[in-house]
Design a protein around this nucleic acid. Structure first.
Length: 628
RNA sequence: GCGCCCGUAGCUCAGUGGAUAGAGCAGCCGCCUUCUAAGCGGUAGGUCGGAAGUUCGAUUCUUCUCGGGCGCGCCA
């Protein structure tokens, strides 16, 4: 990777200066290498002299001059200039640049992979919607983001496990309502008030057909299975696959939820005392006041099945305690989550770190989910430093040891569980917001979006091809924006005017390369094996240099994305790489029978550009068409 | 009230504390007898919501403020 290489060369120049006594010893950071914005600034630039000047006790210009001198001895640089307040502008020799082309051709798409400094086994859970409807265009964003993030993490050297959590619990209020809606339709009755009304509900009812005398539970099982299969198909069409489809109900069936509740009660992280703790938080999250709200048992409730069981999540900075078991004995959704996370951590192959990708409406869920994990991790035998409880803490914790154990557990939970929220997508159709709630029937299914996009683009193609196009456009569109920013999805723009979508710009570059390579083959210029260094050394045009540098940047981009999850930058990178190729294509004719060596060098460059494009397309989950 | 996110070109949005803030689309002017014109070149378009602070340097970090979206259930 060129940037890493340059950073190391800069550092070793610094070490030479230290050894020569020209610069004091110190704990200098690894230099940063940036792309130069204009050609007169060379290929790359570093602000190292600026950032290290203070530690070196020199002015930035002075340190810059010494570094410049030390770097002049390095054969990789054609020139090293000192500019502005102390920027080092680095121009590479052709020999140093073309080494990249050789590397890429040798490694193929694997050149984009890097080795993580700290490789981890990561479980990434995403989409995970209720099996009560098709995957919507809203979930599409989570699907595109989650699958791409998984690809990126894997490419950055981590072991990645993709997981879908099926919310099929029999206690689920929503799923019961869905089952009742289906049951009503099958039995020819009106769906209940607040029930599910979309066409797809009728489709589920039709698929189930004539009823015997079945209860709601039977309908729930049947309709869930139908919806789940549909979701799985739609996601696969969208290019999203999972290693594990995990059933919530299986936790109940295996008795794991009950076992976890007992465990938490034994640790006194949960209990059935008749109160709920509620924290009043000041700005910045500091606890201002602790309120205990009495939750008296309802005296009229004669069945007396038991008391409400609370998770004392306020011990872990959640703003209120959460119900694990309702008074009537039914378990809540979060109770399943306790067992689910216990299960996830207990699996030997993916226990390091959990990433959970949730939609914007689940923002309020982060605190309690983190508290769930912390409660599981809390070790009651731990002792703290004995600092007495202050009056506020005394209303939350029993002892100072418990406070310290909980703090330690919370810190560990935050380390091991990362909840990533993607922001809302607003769908606009015919200039108006298009609501897509499942219950009012006005849903917008992801698969319908793919079909629409494909039909406009390729009216004569078959359905598979249309959906491929739809998938490429939709995935690219979702991924263009940062997951943490709101986005408008203008459906009219995405369909009627989709030829304006930049996905075609980047794919066109790939199709163009294919055309050039076909032409080269016709002219008998295709060679097997690597062109010699002398031949590759003919790649000296600025457009060739720019293309090589852009190809070389992919591993660096992947690593950045893996660090901060900003996978949307890959779409920008794809555009930049495609642009670099289009510029090269425009200015440098590849196939020239009168100049076979130059042609071969350029063919090699085309091939590495193609490898780069395919690699980034693979990460984004879009196709690399041979013709357009 | 508390929390998360956003405010950058006409529109939709990029922009790891660095040099002259970018792209696509929309607008205007050019370029196909040569490998795909779904392309390329040129042109026009900006008080980076506002104010203070940190810094050699702030669109980027901190605080405040104005405007907008969303979330704060014994629903998931």
């Amino acid at each position: 990777m060129i940037r890493d290489e340059l950073a190391l060369r800069l550092r070793s120049a610094m070490e030479r200066l230290v050894a020569a006594g020209e610069v004091p010893e110190g704990d200098y950071d690894l230099p940063e290498i940036a792309e130069s914005k204009s050609p007169e600034h060379g290929d790359y630039a570093s602000n190292f002299a600026l950032t290290a000047a203070k530690k070196a006790g020199l002015s930035p210009r002075e340190l810059g001059e010494r570094l410049q001198k030390a770097l002049a001895a390095d054969a990789a640089f054609e020139s090293v200039d000192l500019a502005g307040p102390g920027f080092l502008n680095l121009k590479l020799t052709t020999a140093a640049l073309i080494a990249t082309v050789g590397d890429v051709l040798e490694l193929g798409e694997a050149y984009a992979r890097t080795r993580a400094d700290a490789p981890r086994r990561i479980n990434i859970e995403f989409v995970s919607v209720n099996p009560n409807g098709p995957i919507t265009v809203g979930s599409g964003r989570g699907a595109a983001f989650g699958s791409t993030l998984a690809n990126v993490l894997s490419s950055a050297g981590h072991t990645v496990h993709r997981e879908y959590y099926i919310n099929d619990g029999v206690n689920s209020e929503q799923m019961r309502l869905f089952a009742e809606s289906v049951k009503a339709l099958v039995e020819g009755r009106a769906v209940p008030e607040n029930g599910y009304k979309g066409d797809y509900v009728q489709a589920v009812a039709d698929a189930i057909g004539v009823s015997g005398d079945h209860g709601t539970g039977w309908f729930q099982t049947q309709s869930q299975a139908i919806m789940l299969a549909k979701q799985r198909d739609d996601l696969a069409t969208f290019g999203v696959e999972f290693d594990t489809w995990f059933s919530e109900q299986s936790l109940h069936d295996g008795g794991l939820v009950d076992a976890c509740l007992l465990e938490l009660e034994a640790k006194r992280m949960a209990d059935d005392e008749p109160y709920r703790t509620v924290l009043k938080l000041a700005k910045g999250g500091k606890v201002e006041e602790v309120e205990r709200q009495d939750q008296p048992q309802d005296e009229d409730d004669a069945d007396g099945t038991g008391n409400t069981v609370w998770l004392r999540s306020t011990k872990f900075a959640d703003d209120m305690d959460r119900v694990l078991r309702r008074k009537d004995g039914r378990l809540t959704y979060i109770a399943s989550d306790v067992a689910y996370h216990r299960d996830k951590f207990s699996r030997p192959l993916n226990a390091d770190k959990l990433i959970t990708v949730l939609g914007p409406d689940h923002h309020g869920y982060i605190g309690r989910l983190t508290a769930v994990v912390a409660a599981l991790l809390e070790r009651p035998d731990q002792h703290g430093d004995g600092t007495p409880l202050d009056p506020i803490e005394a209303r939350i914790y029993r002892t100072s040891d418990e406070r310290d154990a909980c703090a330690a557990a919370l810190a560990e939970a935050k380390e091991r569980l990362e909840v990533v929220i993607f922001q809302i997508v607003r769908f606009v159709k015919e200039g108006k917001p298009a609501p897509m709630r499942k219950r009012d029937g006005n849903i917008y299914a992801l698969i319908d979006l793919l079909d629409e996009l494909g039909k406009i683009q390729a009216p004569d193609a078959d359905l598979d091809e249309q959906r491929r196009i739809g998938r490429d456009v939709a995935r690219y569109f979702y991924l263009m924006r940062s997951h943490e920013t709101h986005m408008d999805f203008d459906i009219d723009l995405a369909t009627k005017r989709s030829d304006e979508n930049p996905v075609f710009y980047v794919q066109y570059a790939h199709a163009r390369i294919e055309a050039v390579l076909r032409k080269a083959e016709e002219e008998g210029l295709v060679q097997f094996g690597m062109p010699s260094r002398d031949v590759l050394g003919l790649l000296t045009d600025p457009r060739e240099r720019a293309l090589i540098k852009k190809i070389a940047d992919l591993p660096w981009e992947v690593r950045r994305c893996a660090e901060d999850y900003g996978v949307h930058r890959l779409t920008s990178y794809a555009v930049e790489l495609a642009r670099a190729y289009h510029h090269f294509y425009d200015g440098c004719r590849v196939v020239q029978p009168t100049q076979p060596d130059l042609s071969r060098a350029r063919i090699a460059l085309c091939r590495s550009a193609q490898i780069g494009l395919r690699a980034v397309f693979g990460l984004l989950g879009i196709s690399a068409p041979e013709r357009m």
